[in-house]
Design a protein around this nucleic acid. Sequence first.
DNA 1: GCCGTTTTCGGCCCGACTGTTTTCAGTCG
Length: 576
Amino acid sequence: MERTLTNAEIARKLLDIRTLMEFAGEPFFKFMAYERAASAVENAAPVADLIAADELQKLPGIGKTIGGRIAEIATTGTCAYLEELSGKYPPTLMELLGVQGVGVKTAAMLFDQHGIASLDDLDRALNSGMLAGTARLGKKSLENMRRGMLAYRGRQRRTPLGVAVPLAHEVAEVLKSRSSARSVVPAGSVRRAEVTVGDIDVVCTSDDPDAVMRAFTSWERAEAVLADGPTKGSIWLEGGLQIDLRVLPEHLYGNLLQHFTGGREHNIQLRELAVRKGLRVSENGILNLATGDNLTCRTEEEVYAAIGLAYIPPEMRLGMGEIEAAAGGTLPTPVQMPDMRGDFHMHTTWSDGVDELDAMVATAARLGYAYHAISDHSWGRRGMGLSPERLRAQRTVIREAGERHGIRTLCASEVDIREDGSLDFDDDVLAELDVVIGSVHSSLRMGREAMTQRLIRACENRYLTIIGHPTGRNIQGFDGSEFDYDAVFAAAARTGTALEIDGQPKRLDLPSALARRAREFGVTFSLDSDAHATGQLQNISYAVGQARRAWITKEEVLNARPLEDVLAFVAAKRHR
DNA sequence: GCCGTTTTCGGCCCGACTGTTTTCAGTCG
């Protein structure tokens, strides 16, 4: 069975083309077009679906030429142009670009003048001293190269959002407590809720930037200081994770935050639009090129307003149509944490959770929810799930705990979806539950056709309320089951089945690009923590972040609705 | 190579920091 390439893999190949083109001396704007196309592919619905629907060239930055090459890559795994370029340079040459401080110019020079074509070559050259005396490569440059190479080899590539968010807040706390820094906030990919981040960006305002920068670069967790300017610094933590800090005066806070939140493609598009209006946008303000006036903004809202746009939330800044929507007044207001009234997905010690049921209920109540559901596993789940008898026993306990803590605690179950699409409990058992989550936990690689039928059949079960973590992906190793996404989304919408966005940092499933696709079919979503401990209930905020990336509004979210609407949603499907 | 509230041709975001430079190229985000 032939595996289709993921969007990430296709984007990777577009970036390879981009780099090789630069090596080959192609014009700047030609190879930059591939970089922009790669960004669009990364954030788009699956390329195979877009090709099938003839929508590939609707993506920003993808025209006839690149669109054709993407189609070629998607069907054959490569394209003639990439192969032609690859033939000119050794494939290991691109390793050099992974080294901090080595760009295409330096890599090309190392290759042309010294025959260095891989990391191993570079290693030998640095150790032998043969690079001494090379133009524009002094002692410091060579030392940085050596350090960069060690870091590159020892470093894990990207950091999960669930690790990056607490770390970013730790940095902010350090700066607040050790300097005069004000308004210290994580920006960049953390603020945009990217699933994984390459580095951590933090911005702050201060009247004494030097002191802030000293506190930053002297932080005991900083293993190396990469940059240490008056307003901008970078450090490496153990393991090579980079943290960038930018400090500016308070009156530029809006400009600063907007600039450093990105994303890259969003900012480029924003500034291109601004240029057409005679404005130059940067972190230092919005310069009116005709009058010479520089507008400084304390809030991001002012920045967007100055360019004639509605405010665009950080998670939507992907360069995927949000600027056009904001200009046209059609950008939806995405769901936010305060909209959330409940959480349908959590486990206790009755199955594989680590905290007692009572503690989970107490914590849910403390978080201010109007309702929540206990959803331990069904019995087919490798022996640790509940039998119908245990499930019935649990119901009594659930009712009591809910009443004791003053919250409406619903009886639910995370029921296995078997290979044939049937559920792990009989209908009479399911009928006793308030909410039913159905999840695939086995045979995740059964193949596209079979998985499509499996999920559609599950949707057609009148008792199934929510499909849990629909693709089964694990961000550290499994891209998710392949199935006909559009067909399953259509089935979910048709049958009144909600699709989950699971907030576990290793899952974040549905992925946001798929969720945005599902939205077009009129699907209802459920944003859940899938907590296995009390401390994980806040994972729901990650689910909300992904929903915001997908432009999902609170009206489209089941657990942003009042309890009676939730119960009506469940009942409507059962009596359909 | 892409794209259009001046344009189907002629543009294409913006600035900080470093190192090796007597004025700037390269890299990064």
